[in-house]
Amino acid sequence: MGDREQKAGDFDQAEARTAAAGPRAVPSLVDGEHHPVDRRTVKVARIIGFSVVLLISIVPLILFTIGWAVGAVPGPVYLSVLGIWLLLLASSLLIAYRWPAARHRHLRYLVEEDGLCIRRGVFWRTVIWIPITRVQHTDVSQGPVQRRLGLGTLTVHTAGTAGASISLAGLEQGIASRLSHHLRPARATDAN
């Protein structure tokens, strides 16, 4: 509950900032263009990807090093394991570096007066249309890395099953809040 209030607080602040910028200063979201999300989201994904890869790979390295130091693992075996480990690490890091960029390249969103369209997918591609008439509620959330860069994730909830919650990560926080406001069902948009 407290968490939700916290989020709402952030959200209100973002809202206030966009309001302070003045309505004319902000271009309309509905511009008929397929926008990419903020480029910095690639950085976020890379930071997270690198941390995960390093965290996972460091454990076997430490174990083997201890084994070698104690004498349980013979030198040649240790060296070959080290080689394989380096190879795996290098390829994982390469993927962690390249994949976010590819994903970013293939992610586009289009805002319509009465809906949102998201296309995404590098190999398996999806185009999904979410009409405002089917939006139940929306969330805007921020992870710790996202917060430092001023990015946010918009999640749209529908009454559906497979598409019960659809997330769009890596939006600039201000845009995420405005989009969330834009997508909320009629009585919420009246306030705008």
Binding site: G121, F123, W124, R125, T126, V127, I128, W129, I130, P131, R134, T158, A159, G160, T161, G163, I166
Partner: peptide, 11 residues
């Protein structure tokens, strides 16, 4: 009764 509609493409 439709919620979201989507188009999917495998490689």
């Amino acid at each position: 009764n439709m919620q979201t509609v989507s188009m999917n493409q495998s490689p």
